[in-house]
């Protein structure tokens, strides 16, 4: 694993208006994420996990400090620029899958490539590759309603991965899954992380996820309370 940085966060603060004052969700975060990391941001509810994920995912902007995502400052991106960055370099996985119900598995995974304007034959190959990664090539014509929770989350992973993003952000990806499916999903993401060197960042307090990550960042009250590298070799 090299140490090429993909995310640099320096003295990051995020405030939200609250009544007549303001609530500080993130309070002076300094972090560096390298390419190929498999990191969990761990903390109780309200610790700032999702806010941090929002800023890394260019869905929100810092109030103070700096967040450089793949060399681009999250605070200075226009809506158009942040959408372009998400479209090409960032993948999202949510606990509720958020698949498009009327489209097939193939079409769900194909969508990010349609947005990128990838040519049809290339698109098909990329979608089939992504479905092969998650072991769902036999379900390409199925609709989300015909899938189990584990299968749906694997489709969501394929959709996040199909464009080969540099960073995948996953918010409680196993929260709706049983233990067996959770392990399958985590193994799939770990495999993709190793094979494609995609940086995975999880926001979680699920012990199963924590067991897989190679770096644990503990957040508490908007501050980094711990940062632990786990050697799994």
């Amino acid at each position: 694993m090299n140490n090429e940085p993909v995310i640099r966060i320096k003295d990051l603060k995020k405030h939200f208006p609250s009544g007549s004052g303001r609530f500080t969700a993130l309070n002076g975060i300094d972090l560096l994420f390298s390419k190929g990391e498999f990191t969990g941001i761990i903390g109780p509810s309200g610790s700032g996990k999702t806010t941090l994920l929002n800023i890394i995912g260019t869905l929100d902007t810092p109030s103070e400090g700096e967040a450089l995502i793949l060399g681009r400052s999250a605070g200075s991106l226009s809506a158009k620029e942040s959408a372009a960055l998400r479209k090409s370099q960032l993948g999202f996985i949510f606990q509720t899958y958020n698949l498009f119900p009327v489209y097939t598995v193939f079409e769900n995974v194909e969508f990010p490539l349609l947005l990128q304007g990838v040519e049809s034959s290339q698109r098909r190959k990329m979608v089939l590759d992504a479905l092969e990664w998650v072991g769902l090539t036999d379900k390409i014509r199925s609709r989300p309603a015909q899938l189990s929770g584990g299968e749906s989350q694997r489709v969501a992973i394929a959709r996040a991965m199909v464009k080969r993003p540099a960073i995948v952000l996953a918010d409680e990806p196993t929260a709706n899954l049983d233990a067996k499916n959770s392990h399958n999903i985590l193994q799939t993401m770990e495999k993709l992380n190793r094979e494609l060197r995609t940086t995975f960042i999880f926001a979680t307090h699920d012990e199963k996820v924590i067991g897989y990550v190679r770096r644990k960042i503990f957040l508490f009250d908007g501050k980094v309370a711990g940062d632990e590298i786990i050697n799994k070799n």
Binding site: L59, R86, K87, S88, L90, F100
Partner: peptide, 16 residues
């Protein structure tokens, strides 16, 4: 609502 939100998250512009 969920579909539109997901599309925005994936990187589709609001105008699109």
């Amino acid at each position: 609502y969920g579909e539109f939100g997901m599309r925005l998250a994936i990187g589709e512009e609001k105008s699109h």
